[in-house]
Design a protein around this nucleic acid. Sequence first.
DNA 1: GCTGCAAGCGGACTACAGTCCGTTTTATTC
DNA 2: GAATAAAACGGACTGTAGTCCGCTTGCAGC
Lengths: 209, 209
Amino acid sequence: MQGEELLRVTGDDGERTDAARNRRLILDAAAEIVATCGPERLTTDAVARRAGVGKGTVFRRFGNRAGLMHALADEAGRSFQHAFMAGPPPLGPGAPPLERLIAFGEASIERMRFDGQILRAAEQQGGPDLEHPTQQLTRLHLAMLLRGLHVPDPELGAYQLSAFLNAGLLLHLQEHRGMSNARLAGAWCALVSALASDADRSRTERGPL
Amino acid sequence: MQGEELLRVTGDDGERTDAARNRRLILDAAAEIVATCGPERLTTDAVARRAGVGKGTVFRRFGNRAGLMHALADEAGRSFQHAFMAGPPPLGPGAPPLERLIAFGEASIERMRFDGQILRAAEQQGGPDLEHPTQQLTRLHLAMLLRGLHVPDPELGAYQLSAFLNAGLLLHLQEHRGMSNARLAGAWCALVSALASDADRSRTERGPL
DNA sequence: GCTGCAAGCGGACTACAGTCCGTTTTATTC
DNA sequence: GAATAAAACGGACTGTAGTCCGCTTGCAGC
């Protein structure tokens, strides 16, 4: 009766120290393998072996291969996340919503050069994980900007926009269809501008509430 | 020297009769399993067993599991394909491009009720197969309609639109987010209308060439 | 320190996708 | 209808994701 439920005061996140240590070991091992052989060569066995832990531990920590990839992708994307949430304009706060939206798309497209492989690998397997915190954060950000443009359904609009910024799609367009980043950015710009001006127009036509 | 290269005059598509027979057997067996247990339960072993063929035959015919799923999805989607290419307006030819686009989105959303499961299963695994003939046909259709609206980059616009009509995404929004088809259709309508009116406006402003 | 126990661990095990290659079938040519 | 080459066949085999469960470890209270 004494040690029942509320004795989770251990580590930072209530994570036991061995668990935390192993998480880092696994993440580092995975990053090393990805850097060496590419994400497609990352097997859970290899990660476990290299990290010096059992295979079960990998799955306990990350759920599945995609979860591990997401964790890796999140580490890579942390700086991007910071840039659009708290960095300098036009990507960060301070610029008007439309400019921020355009900058966001351009940065996402540009970013594929570095993180595309990992992001794509994370997306695969069971379809893109739309409920993943990082995805949600991205959509929340987009929805906020769309709301600033008075788009009728910002939440759904965010889904529409992020569907296009999907790594699998962008990489395909860049690599297999040979589309330049400028062209992709242009299409993005056209899309968000259209949404913005249309919303603006129907707002002023019907009166601004 | 006699039978060298040009002796492919056999079946319909130059497919040997046993090959054609087995293709049908496999497809029927797969459809039956999907109908009974759902697409996620479809294993290549089970299909082969039920069809009474070897496992290798399944892979020879369809490449991989996703290929089989696509073949299944294509059979299910043939009537839809016919509807937007040769059926009555507004989905088929005869209506103005914007109306056809709207109808296309609505039909795609509606369609998920029946074919969503299979479509999603086909999309999974290695990301959506953007080069699959059916996908290409869809994009070609969308691009044509966008061209009719004088959108600047119809080809890329088609990618943008079809990214949203993705089964994985629509099903997620319907099932996990509880969004009504009306809401989804509304967002689609807003999107294509915005593209259309923006293109139209910048065309008339700068003069219609 | 000692004890209790929830959390964590690890690796054998299962299930499935996809490959490989010796054997069989099909269509063609003579 | 026999010979022949190409195509197809099938099932054993391989590699990998993910599970399971008995064992170990770290933490909290004493």
